[in-house]
Each structure stands twice: as structure tokens, then as C-alpha cells.
Nucleic acid binder design. Sequence first.
DNA 1: TGAAATGTTGGGGCG
DNA 2: ACGCCCCAACATTTC
Length: 478
Amino acid sequence: MMMSPAHRETVTRPDRAPTIMWFRDDLRLKDNPALCDAAARGPVVCLYVHDPAFPLGGAEKWWLHGALTALDHDLRACGGRLWIMAGDPWENLSWLVGQTGAGAVVWNRRYGPHARQADADIKAALKARGIDACSHSGNMLHEPWQVRTKQGTPFRVFTPWWRAVQAMGAPLPPLPAPVRPTFAPVPAAVADRLVAVADLALLPVRPDWAGGLRGQWQPGEAAAHARLESFVAEQVDGYATQRELPAQPATSGLSPYLRFGHVSPRQVWHAVEATGKGDQDTACFLSEVGWRDFAQSTLFDFPDLSTANLRREFDAMPWRHDPAALRAWQAGKTGYPIIDAGMRELWHTGWMHNRVRMIVASFLTKHLLIDWRAGAAWFADTLVDADAASNPFNWQWVAGCGLDAAPYFRIFNPVSQGEKFDPAGEYVRTWVPEIARLPDKYIHAPWKAGSVVPAGYPSPIVDLAGGRARALAAWKSL
DNA sequence: TGAAATGTTGGGGCG
DNA sequence: ACGCCCCAACATTTC
């Protein structure tokens, strides 16, 4: 008796050529268009390639260890596993295609110049070998080329770009995780070449500085959704006003989960919309998600975002070479409490409140007149949410050399910013305990307290008025 | 998604 | 009663 086509499809599935799902910055099972594509084609190989051409910061490495562990765990829960390899992606992929007889490789797109070039080369090389290669949209609300001005050019200013995005209506609804996917077996020759997460040596040893990160973060898709759901249920009310206060747990904390793709921006968008609130708080939060997409789009359209001033007149900025000042900033020993609190929060937890990021970035690029790229490099090494687009984009925004940037002369005064956004000194006292006993009136300006200032807390490394005047003079010279 | 300098106004103390 | 000064409070301009 002949089997029906549908029945034959079902029983022959495991014999079909597998599809390689190449995970990169999309370490999730839900709302993963490439993974859904792979699962719909037949047996799946879930692959991660640790690629030395994309060096990670220390905090990112720590996160990635947990992220890969979680993804492998989630895959094993549905009968699969994560195949981890190290080295050049094309070398590994081409070898793996040969070993598994894979008929296709699929992935979700990246938007940085190096990543796009690598992906385009691999796609061409696969197709030249008769292997199907398919890229998907999984990491943005809309692809960069879908949001254009009437002239078809990239937007250069956030607000009209965001209006255009909103006029497009809802982004695609999130996909569920693949239902009962089949997984390709691991050939013996491949098993010998796969590595364990631990073999990637992502965790710090001697010293193990990651205690603060472990205390604060749980990488992985499950933790991402737990955080998203509790934020939407309990914290989004009041977000518009409370988010500016670093002592309040008012922000979403989703940035590293978005960075590694444990959750997609489209999932975030729909989770917020599903509340039906549509008020100022949800609009404010969604616009922050919008800034993330705008940074990705800017990187797509201006590929040298991370290395070159988008406003080229800043090429003549007389940045100072001052390693001692840079080290003091990095270590949180500038003598300005709000700066030092932020830099220590960063070092300890791999994260810093956004308001404080702006203040410390303004201080570095203006009062210290140090190149924003030095600040971006430090953030890239220490942030768990370090993002190839958002990090340089935000530095250029603060430094004034971005497209839609804050004007250079907008110089944050770390004392008045501290008094405005941490009025009771709660944030400073958490991260700069040696001055915790100072009264509120001196908590943001300890040098005014005279002999009461605890020994060991540094005097200000730069005079605010003098640093400000120097920055303005440098900017006027452009 | 500033800060500081400068300008203006108006109430109150005081000769 | 009046003018004058002082200065806080607010507004505008400049960087």
C-alpha cells in the first residue's frame, strides 16, 4: 500500500539532509526565525562557532559562558544539543557540511561591517558548493533598509526615524519555539572536534573577578523572559520618571539579554503592547528599545561607527593623552562621587545605570578631554551588554560627534547631576562606601566637607570649571 | 536626555 | 511718600 505524501514526509524526515542553524547573537529558541526555518526543513544541527575574529570583552565572555550553557540545556530539554566549535566559521562550516551532509545553513542577520562581510562571503561560498544559505531577520524590529526617508536615504535623526517606525505599525509577531524539532545525530568524527563550553575558557581565573556578575545576572532565555515579564507587570508603571534615578530599580535590565539575543526586540515590543496601557511610561520604554534599533541601523548605514567620528570636523579635536586620568576614571577614583559610583558599579556588576553612563561619558570626553574611543573600549571590556552598535553609537552621542548627537557644549556637571538624580546620595553610598557617612549636603562634593572627608577618598582629579573651559576651547578650535 | 553667564523683574528694607 | 539699592527668582543667551 502506498503511503500518502504527508505520511512519507513524516517517516522519511530523519533521513533528509540536515540544516545547520548557525547561532550567533540570537541565543534563544523562541522567536528565532532562522531556527524555525531550519526545523521546518528537517533535522537540525544547532551550531555555535567561537570566532576569534570577533574578540569579546571580559564581561561578555563571562556572559557567553552562561548563555551557551543555558542554550545547550534548553536544547537538551527538547532532545537536541548545542554543537560548539572554535575557530574560523567558514573552515568549521565547510567541514561540518561535508561531515553531516547538510543541505543548508541558516542564520539571523548581524549588522556590523565585519560581520556582514563574513556572512556574505560564507553565503557565496556555500552556494558555490550547491549548499543553500538563508539569512533571516531576528535581531531588530525592522531591517535597516525598511525604514527610509521619502528620498530613500537613511534617517539621521532619531525622532523622525522613530515616527516612521511607528507609522509602519506593529513589528512581526514573535514566533513560538519550533514544535518538536528533530535533531541530526552527531557523527563520530564530528564528536571529536566539538568542544565543551568550558573548553572555550570564557570564565576569569586568577583573579576571578566575576563574583559581582554572578550575584546580579542569570544569562539565558528563561531568565530573560522572567525579567521581561516582571518588568512589564510590575515596573513599567512610573518608568518615565523613575528611570532617571540610579538608586531605583526602575529600569528593565534587559540590555544584556537583548545583546545576546536571549530575547528579541519584537518580543519586548509585543509584551509591552499586550498590556494595553499605551501610556507615557510604555511609550517612553518602547522608545528606548527604539534607540537600540536606531543604533543598529546607524551601524548598518555608517559602517565605521565604532572607529570614526560621524561628524568629521571632530577629527581635529585635540584629545589629551592622559593615561593616569584614564586609569582614575576606569577605577572609579576621580574624586567625583557620582562618577566613581558609576565606574565601580560597572566594574562590580558589568552594568551601569544609563543616566550615570551619560554622566561618566561626558566627564571623560569633556572635563578630561579624552577620546571617546578610549571610553568605548573600556565599556566594551566591562559591560555585559556591550553591543557593537549601541556602545559606539552612545559614546558618539555623548561626545557630540554622532549624527543626532547632544551638542558638545552640553557638559554635565557631576555635582549638579548627582544632586538632581541621586538627591539622597543613596546610589553614591552604595558604591563609594568610604564616604557613606558624609552628610547629604556634601555627598556629591566631598572636598567641601573639609577635614571630615575620609582619608583614602581622592581629591578631584580635575577642576570642574577649568575642565569645562578647556573642553569648550578645544571644541571652538574645530 | 545642560550649565553658566547675563539680563530682567519685582518685592522689601531703608534713608 | 519716594527713590534707591539689594537680591532672589525667573528668563534669555551663550557656550
